[in-house]
Write a protein that binds this DNA or RNA. Structure first.
Lengths: 205, 205
DNA sequence: GTCTATAGACAGATAGAC
DNA sequence: GTCTATCTGTCTATAGAC
């Protein structure tokens, strides 16, 4: 049923979304021009307006797919870790880092998330959606925390939900600051990881 | 030595900066127009370009004053708390909240800080300045933490510097999410405070 | 034939800077 | 208030792929 035409169309949309992620991250939602997105994707504006209603619809679609991918990545990590039964004996610090790695920590992801965050602050409806999606993410992280605690390997000084939320926020804050440092993002991940590890140690008994 | 002319000039600059804080917060750095800033300040664009070289210089100046005010507010709280000798017996949770209150937590401050953060991500030189200023802030917070620990009233499960950094990041993350919630900012401060308090409890012995 | 993408030009609006 | 530059969104005529 999927004709080559629709396949090609999906492909065009995907390429436009990929390009949009880069351009929005680099120039910001306002600074990014439809022209720039098209140029990077290798299309003309004609193709763009044949696939998206407006720049705003493009951004909303992009934000939706990013959110979905983030959530899926974390959930896969969670179910994967549960399946391999690495909960009881593994280092909790390492486990947390594995889950957090699922959310992007490269410079582009950080900047794109910042744009999404700004939009969530400015647009109440989008903000609610953002918070709802993030709550699902937190729930997934809290789930793995609960599983680990249930094995009796460690005890937590905070409820799993609040701990998950704080870990996520701390991770975000550290990666953002890492991305600001001019000396490259090589250390970005390491710095964030180390700080997160110390926080986890402090929160576990 | 300050003639009425320079006094008036300073006044104009101050009003433009106040207006800029609002407009930049609401519309973003790109979305904000010089016209909108002037209109809110009650001036024409002519007056603007007589006081600032460009929109960008206005933003940079504004970011500088915001950073300075933030740092001063926190330092005042710190020295104030040290002076009144409330360190030994007071609830550490309450102390942390007092310090954090010094950084703005209203909707406008949150959005303006987000704009500054985005710019810091995009402009390496500005990013370095931002990080340097924030390090001073962290140092001030760490100082008060160290003072409290020195009284022997509590012990910390984390070095004061890292604890200060994490508290600041957690505060920022919670206030941002509070500002996203459509149900108003009445609870913004309370939600952030509660989460912070729980974190402090978990980090203290 | 049908659908997608292209090039190019269009208007309308708006911005920054002076 | 002017000048210049730019962007969005639209439209047409055209070509290519299946």
């Amino acid at each position: 049923m999927t004709s080559t035409a629709t396949r090609s169309r999906e492909n065009t949309r995907a390429r436009l979304l990929d390009a949009a992620a880069q351009v929005f991250a680099e120039a910001g939602l306002d600074g990014a021009t439809v022209e720039a997105v098209c140029e990077r994707a290798g299309f003309t504006r004609g193709a763009f307006y044949s696939n998206f209603e407006s720049k705003d619809e493009l951004f909303l679609t992009l934000a939706g797919t990013v959110a979905e991918e983030r959530l899926n990545a974390v959930r896969e990590q969670v179910t994967g870790m549960a399946a391999e039964g690495a909960l009881g004996d593994a280092d909790p610090v390492e486990l947390v880092q594995r889950v957090m790695d699922a959310g992007g920590d490269d410079r582009l992801s950080v900047m794109l998330m910042s744009e999404i965050r700004i939009r969530a602050l400015r647009d109440p409806a989008f903000g609610e959606a953002f918070l709802a999606q993030e709550s699902e993410l937190v729930a997934s992280i809290a789930e793995i925390i609960r599983d680990i605690v249930d094995t009796g390997a460690i005890a937590l000084r905070l409820e799993p939900d609040l701990a998950a939320r704080l870990l996520m926020i701390a991770w975000e804050g550290m990666t953002v600051r890492g991305a600001m440092a001019a000396d490259g993002e090589a250390r970005l991940h390491d710095i964030a990881s180390e700080a997160l590890g110390r926080l986890v140690e402090a929160l576990t008994v």
